[in-house]
C-alpha cells in the first residue's frame, strides 16, 4: 500500500510539473520575445503583467469547436495529438531533479536510451497529423518533420553516447553521480551538438522548417483546431522543458553546483534548465529560419562529424585517465 501511495504521489508531482513548467516556459517566451523586440508582451490577463495569458489561451482553445476535415482519416487525425504529447510526459518521469531516489519520478536503468527512444516516438504524432489531415501543406509538413528527425536523431544519439562513455553508465542518475566539474569543458562540443539537434527535433526556430508558416501555413498542424491544437502546442513547450532538463542532466551536471550542498540540488537543476530554456527562446528571436537544404547540411556535415569527434575525444581521455 505504501508503495502504491509512493508511486501515486510521484506520478501526481510529475504530472503537475508537466502541466506547469511548459506554461512557465510559454509565458517566459511571450515576455522575453516581446522585450527582445522592444515590446511589452501580454499585460492584461490575470492582472499582473499578463501572467495568466496562457491559462486564458487554454480556456479559449477549450471553447473552440473541434473540427475534423471531411476527407481526413478520422481516427489517426484525432489520435495524433496524444501521440505527440504523451512521450514527453514519460520522459519527464525519468529525469532526476536532485540526488537520491526521492528526486526522480522513476529510476530507469537504461535511462538515456529510454528518453531518446520515447522522444523519438513523439515525432510520430506530427507524422500522423501530417498524413491524416488530407491537406497538401500538412503532408509537406509531415515529410519535412520526418526528414528532420532522421537527420538529427543521429547526432543527438552520438552526443548522448559520448556522455554515457564518459560516465560508464547509461542511467541518468548514474551519469550525474559520476559527474565532475571538468566534464563541462571536456563534453562541451557534445553538449552543443545535443542541444542543437534537440532543438531541431523539437522543430523550434531556427529549425522550424516543418511548420514554416510563410510556406506551408502550419505544417502538420494546419487542420487542427481547439483543444487538439493546444495539445500540440503544449507538446512543443513540454519538449523544451524535457530537452533543457536532459541537457542539464547529461552535460551541465544536473544537481551539482559550485555551492549549496545536496539539499539544494533541485534548485541547481531547475536553474540550469531555466537558463537553457531562456537560450532556446533567445535563439528563436535571434535567428531566421534555416532552409531545408541548410538544415540537412548542418546535420550531416557539421553535427555528425562534431559528435563523432567528441566521441573520439571522450574515448581518448577515458583511456588516458584509467
Amino acid at each position: 500500500m505504501n508503495d502504491a501511495l509512493d508511486v501515486a504521489v510521484r506520478l501526481v508531482i510529475v504530472f503537475g510539473l508537466f502541466l506547469v513548467l511548459p506554461l512557465v516556459v510559454g509565458q517566459t517566451e511571450h515576455k522575453v520575445m516581446a522585450h527582445m523586440q522592444g515590446r511589452l508582451g501580454p499585460m492584461y490577463a490575470g492582472g499582473f503583467h499578463g501572467w495568466a495569458q496562457l491559462v486564458a489561451d487554454g480556456v479559449k482553445f477549450a471553447q473552440k469547436e473541434d473540427v475534423v476535415p471531411k476527407d481526413a482519416d478520422r481516427r489517426v487525425f484525432q489520435l495524433a495529438p496524444a501521440v505527440a504529447l504523451l512521450p514527453y510526459l514519460l520522459v519527464l518521469l525519468a529525469i532526476p531533479i536532485g540526488p537520491g531516489e526521492g528526486a526522480v519520478g522513476q529510476v530507469i536503468d537504461a535511462g538515456i536510451f529510454f528518453v531518446l527512444a520515447v522522444m523519438g516516438v513523439g515525432v510520430l504524432g506530427s507524422l500522423m497529423a501530417g498524413w491524416a489531415s488530407a491537406n497538401k501543406f500538412s503532408l509537406l509538413g509531415g515529410l519535412r518533420t520526418a526528414a528532420q528527425l532522421l537527420a538529427y536523431e543521429l547526432p543527438m544519439l552520438l552526443a548522448a553516447a559520448s556522455v554515457a562513455m564518459a560516465a560508464g553508465t547509461v542511467s541518468l542518475p548514474g551519469i550525474l553521480n559520476a559527474f565532475e566539474w571538468w566534464w563541462l569543458p571536456w563534453q562541451i562540443v557534445g553538449a552543443i551538438v545535443f542541444f542543437v539537434a534537440g532543438l531541431a527535433e523539437l522543430q523550434r526556430p531556427p529549425f522550424d522548417m516543418p511548420v514554416a508558416d510563410s510556406e506551408i501555413i502550419f505544417g502538420a498542424y494546419t487542420e487542427y483546431t481547439g483543444l487538439r491544437f493546444a495539445l500540440f502546442l503544449l507538446a512543443e513547450y513540454a519538449g523544451i522543458v524535457v530537452l533543457c532538463g536532459l541537457t542539464t542532466v547529461l552535460f551541465l551536471g544536473g544537481w551539482h553546483g559550485p555551492f549549496g550542498g545536496d539539499g539544494l540540488g533541485w534548485v541547481w537543476t531547475l536553474l540550469k534548465t531555466a537558463v537553457l530554456a531562456f537560450v532556446v527562446i533567445w535563439l528563436r528571436v535571434t535567428y531566421p529560419r534555416l532552409r531545408e537544404d541548410q538544415l540537412q547540411k548542418l546535420a550531416w556535415t557539421t553535427l555528425v562529424p562534431l559528435a563523432l569527434a567528441q566521441i573520439a575525444l571522450t574515448g581518448i581521455v577515458k583511456v588516458a585517465i584509467q
Partner: peptide, 20 residues
C-alpha cells in the same frame, strides 16, 4: 528501449517518410 529507439523511432519514421 533499443527496440523502441531503433524500430519505432527510426525505422517506422523512415517507412512513413517513404509512404508519404
Amino acid at each position: 528501449w533499443v527496440q523502441v529507439l531503433i524500430y519505432v523511432g527510426s525505422v517506422v519514421v523512415l517507412l512513413l517518410f517513404g509512404l508519404m
